[in-house]
């Protein structure tokens, strides 16, 4: 079959999204007010370390001043990457058609 890998990819993502939807519904219904679900694993680890009395000895030189600006840089990162991927796959495809 021509599109086996594409189909497997789509199914994997759908299963993943389905599990998230079910689990999220469950988590949201048991969440106490003021609590936030789906935080980052990086900060969970930092919490454990700090709860043992460790204080970080160095702080970031620059921090995105708000969540929006942080999102901006994350999007920029993804956009730059996608641009490069799209450019070269398009270039190869065009070349293959011409030759």
């Amino acid at each position: 079959m021509k599109y086996t890998l594409e189909i497997i990819t789509v199914i994997t993502i759908l299963v993943f999204a389905g599990i998230f939807a079910v689990q999220n519904a469950h988590i949201q219904s048991t969440l106490k007010p003021g609590e936030e679900a789906w935080s980052g694993a990086d900060s969970s680890a930092a919490e454990i370390i700090q709860s043992n009395g460790y204080t970080p000895w160095f702080t970031p030189i620059w921090e995105p001043p708000s969540g929006e600006i942080e999102t901006l840089f994350f999007c920029l990162q993804a956009a730059l990457g996608s641009l490069v991927i799209g450019y070269f796959f398009g270039y190869y495809r065009g070349k293959a058609v011409r030759d």
């Binding site: 689990q23 980052g40 694993a41 070269f88 270039y91």
Partner: peptide
Amino acid sequence: LPLLAVSGAFVFVLSSLKMPSVTGSCS
């Protein structure tokens, strides 16, 4: 080199996508 650029770009894209996981946190 184009393939090297694509692989680098792939690290850029995938490491910017924070996704929710079964443990209830994102990575």
